[in-house]
């Protein structure tokens, strides 16, 4: 019985993790459109787009090798694998025992490695530019990401993400460690940077020279493009889920208890939707940073995490 329940939970998690991010992308777009006094696209537009792209043919540049063809699959699969490790409506996840935060960060790194290789494979200057810039942002955001998750893990006493979420959800809000705001700030900045959103990068820009993430996808079409877009959506979804569950762990479903599932689902969807809406507001109200000012923001993220470390070191949990 419990086995069947576990399977059921895993199935819900899988569905949620793979398809809910597409709605979140829709919410961000809708909020941005509304703030610009436009009506905006339907919430499920991203899904429609993906289905259409999957049905289309693909044009491969003649300069590219097998790396270019492989990259969308690898990128998507690595992001999906990480999504399987980050809790959503319940803190129990299918790959819970393997969900070490270092592994999560390095899996996202693998996904990026493949994408950047494929970008250089096209032999076009725009894609090379994207690969260089993305590597730069990633190299500087990784330390802040490791430090902030390190602090969260330290407070919780574990290095596994689902367990962290579980420990935090057990505690009352007043008992949360005072370093939580610091970690939250650090992680939010890093998440924005790694997802290539404003103010680090603008996903809606049409000027190639200012692109970071989008320029790597310029040569993709059809199913390849669909996988890349979906992979980026998965990344956004798992970042929002991570923030929502680490810092606002309200109403999580308990494993193997069916009755708590509806509340868990509702709470997860509500929390991530709010975060996505906030992201939309942020994107609408902030200007993009100059490329070399990105380091200042990442340094702020690192400094917040270092402050959290200092606090944990000198005072304890």
């Amino acid at each position: 019985m419990t086995f069947a329940l576990d399977i059921g939970f895993a199935a819900i998690h899988l569905a949620l993790v793979l398809f809910w991010p597409l709605v979140l992308v829709g919410i961000v777009r809708r909020v941005k459109a509304r703030l610009a006094c436009r009506r905006g696209l339907p919430l499920l537009q991203e899904l429609t787009d993906l289905l259409k792209l999957f049905r289309k043919g693909e044009v491969i540049p003649d300069t590219a090798t097998w790396v270019f063809r492989l990259a969308p699959w690898g990128t998507w699969a690595a992001s999906a694998l990480v999504a399987l490790m980050v809790p959503t409506f319940s803190w129990s996840v299918p790959l819970g025992a393997q969900a070490d935060f270092i592994l999560v960060i390095y899996l996202l790194g693998s996904s990026r490695f493949l994408r950047n290789l494929a970008a250089l494979d096209t032999a076009t200057a725009f894609a090379g530019l994207a690969a260089s810039r993305e590597s730069f942002v990633a190299a500087l955001s990784e330390p802040a990401m490791v430090l902030s998750l390190w602090c969260a893990g330290w407070v919780a006493g574990t290095s596994r993400i689902p367990e962290m979420v579980w420990r935090f959800s057990e505690k009352a809000a007043a008992e949360l460690s005072p370093v939580h705001p610091l970690i939250l700030v650090a992680l939010v900045i890093v998440a924005i940077a790694e997802n290539a959103r404003v103010p680090f990068d603008d996903p809606t820009t049409h000027l190639e020279l200012t692109m970071i993430h989008e320029a790597a996808l310029l040569e993709y079409s059809g199913p390849g493009l669909a996988l890349m877009q979906w992979g980026a959506g998965l990344h956004l979804g798992l970042s929002l889920a991570l923030i929502a569950n680490l810092f606002f762990p309200i109403g999580l479903a308990a494993p193997a208890e069916l009755g708590t599932v509806p509340l868990g689902l509702f709470s997860f969807m509500a929390r991530t939707s709010v975060l996505a809406a906030l992201l939309g507001v942020l994107e609408s109200t902030m200007a993009r940073l100059r490329f070399f000012r990105i380091t200042d923001w990442l340094a702020l993220s690192g400094a917040a995490a270092v402050l959290a470390v200092i606090r944990l070191v000198t005072v304890g949990r």
Binding site: T63, A64, T65, V67, I105, Y106, G109, R112, F113, N116, L117, A119, L120, D121, T122, A123, G128, A131, S132, S135, F136, A138, A139, L140, S141, E142, P143, A144, M145, V146, L147, W150, G302, A305
Partner: peptide, 26 residues
């Protein structure tokens, strides 16, 4: 650990560059 993470990021950039510029493209 943060240094090791930075090293990871730099090494990834370094070898994306080596493999991408050296072996891929034209």
């Amino acid at each position: 650990a943060a240094c090791l993470a930075l090293v990871g990021g730099l090494a990834a950039a370094c070898f994306v560059r080596a493999a991408g510029v050296g072996f891929l493209g034209l």
